[in-house]
Simulated assay, not measured.
Amino acid sequence: MVEVWWPLLAAAVPALIGGQALRIKKRRGEEERIKSARGREKSSDEIFVCERVCTSKRMLKKVGAFSKDPIPDTCVTVCGVSELDACSDACARTVCVNQHQVANWNDICLRRCQSECLKLSSSSSRSS
């Protein structure tokens, strides 16, 4: 009876390790995108970067329950010296405006919103 479980275990372990590796790779990719956005400050002739963030169904789905009582279908455009600054400020004004009692949830809300904002920003700059 024990011999039957060994092949199943042998098949499950690589799948679990592979799944964990994919999650780590995705997390590192998001961290790198935020770091690179922090360094993308504009030159003196391009003073501001503007980002538009909306409390769309897609954004609220990405942020999840970390957004407390958002007002659906509202948008704000914010300008800053980098894409990260503009995204951070826009997220704080729309998606993550109401603070949770649990402080860590506010940070997670901002990080997820910034990440999504930067994804949209980089995809729109590639298509232009």
Rank of each mutant, 00 (worst) to 15 (best):
E46G: 07
Q114V: 06
C117P: 06
K68E: 10
Q99Y: 12
G64R: 07
C54T: 03
D107H: 13
R111E: 13
S128V: 03
E31G: 13
C54A: 08
D107M: 08
R38N: 11
C91R: 07
K119N: 12
R93E: 12
R27N: 14
S67Y: 00
S127C: 07
C50L: 02
I108V: 07
T55K: 05
I34E: 15
T55N: 08
K35H: 02
K62L: 06
G64C: 09
L84D: 04
G64D: 15
K61N: 12
A12D: 08
D69R: 10
L84N: 08
E32N: 12
S127W: 01
V76I: 05
L118H: 06
L120M: 08
F66Q: 10
Q99W: 14
G19M: 03
C91P: 14
T94C: 07
G29A: 02
I24R: 03
K119R: 14
F48I: 07
K68V: 09
L110R: 15
E83L: 13
Q114Y: 12
K26L: 05
I17G: 14
L120S: 13
F66M: 10
A86N: 05
V4N: 13
A15R: 05
W105M: 15
E31A: 15
A103L: 05
K35R: 00
K26V: 03
V76P: 11
A12K: 04
S44R: 00
S121D: 14
C75E: 04
I17N: 14
G64N: 12
V53H: 04
G39M: 01
T77Y: 02
